[in-house]
Write a protein that binds this DNA or RNA. Structure first.
Length: 411
RNA sequence: GGAAGAAUGGCAGAGCUGGUUUAAUGCACUAGUCUUGAAAACUAGCGUACGUUUACGCGUACCGGGGGUUCGAAUCCCUCUUCUUCCGCCA
């Protein structure tokens, strides 16, 4: 564990917490045993008192009652220590991120990410406009209007831009369904338990929009409600893998972002995303990860966009993930790579919080593995479609998308 | 938003005037007997978590969540959540 966490930049001063956790857990166990023994005494005595009352032996019953007060007092001290240990344990465990997979490279920033699969053709050279200019030119995208209605980072799509968005949603959902995923329409607001189970809380507390009056969070990703469908469940081994997909808007505060990263559609507070989610047996999860990578890759090929796949280094890896591959798409006018998908294996990190288990053939209960990936995130796909497929006559829609848009060019 | 009622094991459903309930019973499920095979019948088993034990097992907690009263709570009290019915509002 310590070696794995070192990839996230955890030095010995931080991994010390693991030893503390083990020691506090020992205390917890001890207090549990002691408290159980006291409670057992009370149970035995209570039964005796009941019998004595029935046989009319009131005095002796009153005698026994005296002793119970002492037992209770003793139990109280055990119980308070038990509760304290449990509280400390929970607080400490929440500070420990997932242990990176063996293949995760060391490193602190995105510069240390490994290019897992590079774009093997030459990158397109476009002597054209960035998407924010194209959006205005064809009247499909309006940032000013979004500022007026809501604020920065909430763009308005209109006309063919709006239609393109709807086309992409339907295209991605159809592709997921064809690959065997069950389509889900989840709630867009979730409660605290749900956000905690998939690991957004406490890690991403400041990044989610929060409705104080009702104590609910706006989704940062469909992963949250959809993975939580099976929270607390024990599923049959025969039902695995569970495959689900869903389209939702995603809301992210993106506190602390600035500069060219947030220009145009590059980083917005509300965007649409189609997510694919799987629950698998532990021994199959890395094979499943490959399968999901392949699914996402096929989408980008069908959209005729230049892409590359990165294996995230320890420092860039999400808090909850054991292994993550990012897909980046090339925005030709900005000459920038933009992340459009993140495909991760969480192993048991989420299922442990979810209490999502399966019963194997011998009847034993085991934690399942959970995985998810974007297939795909819309806003940046639109960036790439506009910038890469622009011509002097207009923006060409890829063939795979035309049945969904109903037009083959934006002009 | 207002009023009344309800929440029990995979499902149905007793218990709810506090102490042989270690939660009855039925269905479903699993194994066995019987049968050429199946069905039926019969027999047995059948929840979760934590702790403990080499192991068989044992202890504790859990009857929507949390708290309280009591020697003892599924049962009494408080509170929250959800559901049902009625009223109000409304796509």
């Amino acid at each position: 564990m310590k070696k794995g966490l070192a990839k996230r930049g955890w030095d010995t001063s931080k991994t010390e917490v693991l030893d503390q956790i083990i020691s506090i857990d020992d205390t917890r166990k001890k207090m549990q045993t002691l408290s159980d023994a006291e409670l057992a005494k009370i149970n035995t005595l209570s039964t005796q008192i009941g019998d004595l009352f029935k046989s009319g032996n009131r005095d002796e019953a009153e005698n026994l009652k005296q002793g119970i007060a002492d037992i209770k007092a003793t139990n109280e001290t055990y119980l308070s220590q038990l509760k304290e240990a449990e509280a400390q344990l929970e607080a400490m465990l929440l500070t420990v991120p997932n242990i990176p997979h063996l293949s995760v490279p060391s490193g602190n920033t995105d510069a240390d990410n490994e290019v897992y699969k590079d774009w093997d053709k030459t990158l397109p050279v476009v002597d054209g406009k960035p998407h924010w200019d194209l959006g205005t030119q064809y009247n499909i995208l309006d940032f000013e209007l979004g500022n007026k209605i809501t604020g920065a980072g909430f763009p308005v799509f209109r006309g063919k831009g709006s239609r393109l968005q709807r086309a992409l949603i339907n295209f991605f959902l159809d592709e997921s369904t064809r690959a065997g995923y069950e389509e889900i329409v989840p709630p867009l607001l979730v409660n605290e338990s749900t956000a905690r189970a998939t690991g957004q809380l406490p890690d991403k507390d400041g990044q989610m929009y929060y409705c104080e009056r009702d104590d609910l969070y706006l989704l940062p990703t469909a992963e949250v409600p959809i993975t939580n469908i099976y929270r607390g469940d024990i599923v049959d081994e025969a039902d695995l893998p569970l495959k689900m997909t869903g389209y939702t808007p995603c809301f992210r505060r993106e506190a602390g972002s600035y500069g060219s990263d947030v220009k145009g559609l590059n980083r917005v507070h509300q965007f649409d995303k189609i997510e694919i989610i799987q629950v698998t047996k532990p021994e199959h999860s890395y094979q499943t990860l490959e399968e999901m990578l392949n699914h996402v890759e096929q989408l980008l090929i069908k959209l005729e966009l230049p892409y590359r796949i990165l294996r995230l280094c320890g420092g860039d890896l999400g808090y909850t993930s054991a292994l993550t591959f990012d897909f980046e798409v090339y925005a030709a006018a900005q000459q920038k790579w933009l992340e459009v998908s993140s495909v991760s294996n969480f192993e048991t990190f989420q299922s442990n919080r979810l209490k999502l288990r399966y019963k194997d053939n011998s009847g034993k209960k085991q934690l399942a593995h959970t995985l998810n990936g974007s297939a795909l995130a819309l806003a940046r796909i639109i960036v790439a479609l506009l910038e890469n497929h622009q011509t002097p006559e207009g923006i060409i829609i890829p063939a795979a998308l035309r049945p969904y848009t109903g037009f083959d060019m934006i002009n």
